[in-house]
Design a protein around this nucleic acid. Sequence first.
DNA 1: CAAGAACGAAAAATCGATTTATCGATTAGA
DNA 2: TCTAATCGATAAATCGATTTTTCGTTCTTG
Lengths: 358, 358
Amino acid sequence: MTQREVQQRRPSIHDVASHAGVSAATVSKVLAGVTTVRPENAQRVFDAVERLGYRVDPLASDMRRAKRRIIGAIMPEFESEFFGSMVTELEGLAEQRGYTLVAASSRESEAREKEILARMHDWRVAGVVLAPVRNEHGPAAAFMKANGMTGVLIDRVLSDDAFDTVSADSAAASAEVARMLVGNGHSHILVIGLAEQAATVRARLEGFRTQALALNPSVRIDVITSEVSVEPLRASLRDYFARGERPTAVYSLLLKGTLVALSEFRRRGWHCPNDISLVGFDDAEWMQVTWPAIAAVVQPVRQIASEAMNLLFRRVEGAMGPPTARLEPCQVLMRESVGSPGSGPHSGGGDRQQPPLS
Amino acid sequence: MTQREVQQRRPSIHDVASHAGVSAATVSKVLAGVTTVRPENAQRVFDAVERLGYRVDPLASDMRRAKRRIIGAIMPEFESEFFGSMVTELEGLAEQRGYTLVAASSRESEAREKEILARMHDWRVAGVVLAPVRNEHGPAAAFMKANGMTGVLIDRVLSDDAFDTVSADSAAASAEVARMLVGNGHSHILVIGLAEQAATVRARLEGFRTQALALNPSVRIDVITSEVSVEPLRASLRDYFARGERPTAVYSLLLKGTLVALSEFRRRGWHCPNDISLVGFDDAEWMQVTWPAIAAVVQPVRQIASEAMNLLFRRVEGAMGPPTARLEPCQVLMRESVGSPGSGPHSGGGDRQQPPLS
DNA sequence: CAAGAACGAAAAATCGATTTATCGATTAGA
DNA sequence: TCTAATCGATAAATCGATTTTTCGTTCTTG
């Protein structure tokens, strides 16, 4: 009966100690790799660990430790490929260093973001990777600052005076999109976006505008943005087209906008690239299999995740010095959704074109 | 100086106790809502909590407690909308009950799945929501059983003799797809899938086949599956078409397959639904904005998540009794990618059709 | 050979909570 | 009036590890 009860509950460090005939402190030292233990005793500890199938309880272990081996990750959402793979990467990197990642979605709400952060602070996480809803000046970053938390800000940020930041080089990528579109002869381009406040969205817009005007000073760039959600953006876009505006290309500053643009094109019976060209910031798996394939800016998820974790652990280990602001280069994928203006609906070369067989 | 140090480190229950002039045990009781405390003392505790900004340390709290308030979630991946929103839902539901969710991706590997599970067992999680890579008979479920862990299996499962299971009603949804396709006159249908071993994929196949044959005994159903990954599937599909096989409709049993099918259609210059019809299991946001919109089976993510958590917490709270196997109904969305066979490439009514304005 | 340094391991304190045992004061009952 | 029961609160034990302190041996060294 006692046998059974002992087997029910997981062995603790004391069980290992008594089986090995040493003290719990010695077991702890052996497992921590301290060398001042007699080899004979160390072997007995290893044997007991093996026999009992003992594993350290990370919760109890973190209890005594100054820095708990937990990393928090807060993303605006998990539904998109970008943040989904971001969490996957972060989790893998945390695990590699023996840390546990606790991830939560702020669901695009700054209020929720702060609540989650408070809860992570309760857990006394060693560090936080925060992808803020809006930008680096939100209440979440302020909370982290006020409570002396260590963290890294990613994605919708440019730079901060307290935290390291890592994001895609939006401006450079947008400049390349400008070269692609203006280079193809487009001189009336619509840019759509959400939350112009977000530093990166502004960077994308400015990067695009500057480069486009440099290449062709007479290019016309219309901008439609919405603060709140996608629906107002959809309404504005609908209005814009209904007024008779006919840009030859659309550059969407974010994935949701690309979807909105596509559905509005659908609604009006327009085809890419014959009737209008389209480029989107943020790539997704489906974009290369649809007809036409959608040109897109690919964000370097792995690099961002890896760099963020490197910076974070440097700070966790006590590194001082001014915060750094990293920009990771993007890749711009030219695809069939971009053509030259004026190749009209019946000029061929559009989505009816037969792709080469391998 | 001492002032500052005190402010550096977060207040513990003892700090609250001394500020309130009571013992730590009393503070604990007040915060737990025990009523045997003099109202006067309770008030002083609340005041001290307020003044110090005290919050319970969940790690220390869970230390003493028998059941730790941590739930583990293991998904095959985070990149897709389905598992992404699943994690979001699960996290919200866990939070509602005061639990912390620790999520990890098995990256479609059973070996990794088991390792993650072992690590969650180390944390002594109260329960686990496992979406197995293959099915309920994998090593992960065996590990949970062997170690007396409580958990719920979701998505790629049908039923189990040890754990409650929750999944989409694949068979019923597939039967509806069969009605849709056969009802539209299709008599040669290709079904593609991955990992036929997965119980749900088999259920989808059988649900489809049974209903299709019931409606038209002479319907021809070809099946292409691949065990390993998507690439062999793509190769087989390419072979199949190269041999001159010309089904009039394709039913993909999973999202990856839908993408593969679309890209193969592209490669051959085929259009939906003129040249071939397409229905996919699993919906995604982009499917309704592409041209044509892709008909799809929508899985009830919220219901699955909610039911899984209900069942899990029932077990966590000690409920006994035989495991249940829930099937949540899906919704089948008819879209433009499905048409009638024989309406040939030049018969109109396909992806060139002008959608109604409004 | 005795004092001191070095070494290895055990004992004890600690982390921050919860829970159980204990204790003093008040009230009830005999 | 004295004992027993009740009540509220405190002290102490506990969870499972890590870290610091203490202690007994052995090895140096003057």
